[in-house]
Write a protein that binds this DNA or RNA. Structure first.
Length: 513
RNA sequence: GCAGGUGUAGCUCAGUUGGUUAGAGCGCCGGUCUGUGGAACCGGAGGUCGGUGGUUCGAGCCCACCCACCUGUACCA
C-alpha cells in the first residue's frame, strides 16, 4: 500500500500563525517606536527566556488531571516542571528576586517577547502572541504609577494613534475592595462572590449596564441560550455598585449610567465611603495620580480615572490601568469592530515578595503588540505596502560560462547596494518572468545570445510594463510590444537599474514620464 | 468547559427521492511560444466527499459515535 497514511500533515496547531511580509515589517517598525519611548523614559532593556520553572510563574502548578490547563508545561529530564511563560511580569519578578542585591532600586526595565497561553483561540486571540512591557520595581509611590500612565499615552501616540482615539483608564483595586467590604462582601468567606462581582464589572463594555446588573444578581442568559450564574447580590448591594463602579464610564453603551466628571466621582466616593479605610486610601491615590498627570499636561482626554476598570484578578494590589481605543471601525458587514483594550497594567506589590518574603513594590504595564497592530491596520496607519523584491537576472542560457556572466551581473548590482538575485529554479523564460512578478521584482535583466553578441543586456521595468500592458487587449500584440523594455550596454547595467528604481521610488513626480 | 452551527479539490461552492468512473469557477503546473508577467487557446496535476462504525444489492446523501473548524458564552495570570 501507499505510504500516504503515515505522511505527516503540513499544518499548524490552532491558535498559532505564520507571519511574513508586510506584517513583519510593520511589527518591526512598531516595536522600534515603542522602544524609543520606553528608552526616552529611562527604562533599560532586559531579556528573559521563554521557559521558566513552573513554580516561579505562579499559581499554575500542573496537576495530574490537567497538567496543561492554561499554560504549556512539560517535565525536564530531572523531573522538574517547566512552563512556557504566559506573561512577562512573572519572569521579571523572578529576575528581580534572583538578582535583587545587584540591581539598582528602583529597577526600571522593558522587554518584548512572545508569551504562550494554552486556551481557546478566537478572532485576534492566539496561543502565541507578543507583549511589550515596561516596569518599575522598588518604587512605592503613586508617582511611578502616574509615570507609567503618561508613558502609555505617549507610546500610543508614537505608534500613530491620534489623541482622542484612545484613553488610558485608571482605577484602584483598593477602591474596588473597599466598596465590596462596605456592602458586606469582606472576609475570606466571600472571596468567591467578590471574584464574581469583579468579573461582572469587568464586562461592562462588553455586556453593558444591563448585562452587568444581571450578572450581579441572579445571572444572565446569553445569545446561545447558555446561562451564566450571577453573584446573587440583593437590590441595595447592586445599587451601591451601580452608583459607584458603573458610574462615570466614559463611553456608556447604554443610557443608564450617568457620565459624571472624574472629580465629582472621586468626591462622591470619598463622601459615601468615608468610614472605609481601604476605599479612602484608594481614592487618595487616584487623586494624586490625576493631579500628577494634569500637572504634566495630560488631560482627561488622555488619562481618565474610571471606576469600571478591573484588570487581572490575581496579583494587582493598587492602581490599575487599561488603554482603550475609542474610535469606531466597521467590519465588512458594516458592524462595529471592538478592539477592546490594547494594553494594561497596574501595581503588583506582592509579586516579588513571593520569592523574598520582604515586600517589593512594583508597577508596570504591557502592550498587546499583535492587537495594537491589528488596530493600526484598521486605522490605515500600518504600512501595508509589499516589500520591493530583488532585481531578477534571468537565466537564458545554461552554459556554465554564461551562468558565470549572470552571477557577475548580480554581484555588480549587490556591490552597488541593489537587491538582486539570479534565477535559481529550473523553469523556462515564462516561468522566470512569473517568478519575478511574484517576488514583486522591480525589474528583470535579460541577456540571450543576441544581446551577448552585441555586448548588451535587456532591462525590463516590470512596474512600468504592467501599467502599459493594462492598455493592451490583444495577446499577440502584448507579446510583440515588450513594454517598458530597453537595451543598454553591459557596462551601463547598474546605472540603468538605478534609474528604474528611482522612477519607482518617486512615482508622484511622474510628470516627466 | 457549556450552547448552537458547519464539514465535498489550494479557495468559493454544485451534487437530483440513495444508483455506474464525484463536478464547476477561480487558483496552480505545463504547452501553443529561442525568448517575455496580464489576457487567450489547449492540456495536466490535485479528492480515502472530516473520521469510524452501522442500515442497504448499492451511501457524498440515511443513522450512531468521534474529530476539526466557526459563532456565542465561561475562564483568562
Amino acid at each position: 500500500m501507499s505510504t500516504q497514511s503515515n505522511k505527516p500533515k503540513a499544518r499548524l496547531p490552532r491558535g498559532l500563525v505564520d507571519r511574513h511580509g508586510a506584517e513583519l515589517t510593520a511589527t518591526r517598525a512598531m516595536l522600534d517606536k515603542i522602544r524609543a519611548v520606553y528608552e526616552l523614559y529611562g527604562f533599560d532593556a532586559l531579556e528573559t527566556p521563554a521557559i521558566e520553572y513552573t513554580d516561579a510563574l505562579g499559581k499554575f502548578l500542573p496537576d495530574q488531571d490537567r497538567p496543561n490547563e492554561g499554560v504549556f508545561s512539560f517535565q525536564d529530564d530531572d523531573e522538574q516542571w517547566l512552563s512556557l511563560r504566559y506573561d512577562l511580569t512573572a519572569p521579571l519578578a523572578r529576575h528581580v528576586a534572583e538578582h535583587f542585591d545587584a540591581l539598582p532600586k528602583p529597577f526600571r526595565s522593558y522587554r518584548a517577547g512572545f508569551v504562550f497561553r494554552n486556551e481557546k483561540p478566537g478572532p485576534g486571540r492566539f496561543r502565541q502572541f507578543m507583549q511589550f512591557d515596561a516596569d518599575t520595581v522598588g518604587a512605592p509611590s503613586v508617582s511611578a504609577d502616574a509615570e507609567i500612565c503618561m508613558m502609555a499615552a505617549d507610546t500610543l501616540e508614537a505608534v500613530g494613534i491620534a489623541r482622542g482615539d484612545y484613553v488610558i483608564k485608571v482605577n484602584n483595586r483598593k477602591v474596588l475592595d473597599g466598596v465590596l467590604e462596605a456592602i458586606g462582601l469582606g472576609g475570606d468567606e466571600n472571596a468567591g462572590r467578590r471574584l464574581t462581582v469583579l468579573r461582572a464589572i469587568d464586562k461592562l463594555d462588553k455586556l453593558g449596564v444591563l448585562g452587568v446588573t444581571q450578572l450581579l444578581g441572579e445571572g444572565r442568559l446569553d445569545d446561545s441560550g447558555d446561562f451564566t450564574k450571577g453573584a446573587r447580590l440583593d437590590a441595595p448591594q447592586i445599587l451601591t455598585i451601580r452608583k459607584t463602579m458603573l458610574r462615570g464610564t466614559p463611553k456608556p453603551m447604554n443610557e443608564d449610567p450617568v457620565t459624571i466628571s472624574e472629580t465629582s466621582w472621586l468626591d462622591q466616593l470619598e463622601r459615601d465611603f468615608a468610614d472605609n479605610e481601604t476605599a479612602s486610601a484608594g481614592v487618595r491615590e487616584l487623586r494624586q495620580i490625576a493631579q500628577l498627570c494634569r500637572a504634566a499636561g495630560y488631560g482627561e482626554d488622555r488619562i481618565l480615572i474610571d471606576p469600571s476598570v478591573v484588570r487581572g484578578l490575581e496579583y494587582y494590589t493598587g492602581p490599575v490601568y487599561e488603554a482603550e481605543l475609542t474610535f469606531e471601525v466597521k467590519d465588512e458587514h458594516g458592524r462595529p469592530v471592538r478592539f477592546g483594550s490594547v494594553a494594561g497594567g497596574g501595581r503588583y506589590d506582592g509579586l516579588v515578595a513571593r520569592f523574598r518574603g520582604e515586600a517589593v513594590p512594583a508597577t508596570g504595564f504591557s502592550i498587546g503588540v499583535s492587537r495594537l497592530l491589528h488596530a493600526l491596520a484598521h486605522l490605515g496607519k500600518m504600512d501595508a505596502e509589499p516589500e520591493i523584491g530583488p532585481v531578477v537576472v534571468l537565466v537564458m542560457d545554461k552554459q556554465p560560462e554564461r551562468i558565470a556572466d549572470y552571477m557577475k551581473m548580480v554581484s555588480d548590482l549587490r556591490a552597488n547596494g541593489i537587491r538582486a538575485e539570479m534565477y535559481l529554479g529550473g523553469g523556462g523564460m515564462k516561468a522566470q518572468m512569473k517568478y519575478a512578478d511574484k517576488r514583486n521584482a522591480p525589474a528583470v535583466i535579460i541577456q540571450g545570445s543576441n544581446e551577448k553578441d552585441a555586448g548588451e543586456v535587456q532591462v525590463k521595468d516590470l512596474v512600468e510594463g504592467a501599467k502599459i500592458a493594462a492598455g493592451i487587449a490583444d495577446n499577440a500584440e502584448y507579446r510583440a510590444a515588450r513594454p517598458a523594455q530597453f537595451a543598454v550596454k553591459e557596462a551601463e547595467l547598474v546605472e540603468a537599474i538605478r534609474g528604474v528604481l528611482e522612477r519607482r521610488a518617486a512615482p508622484s513626480l511622474g510628470l516627466a514620464d
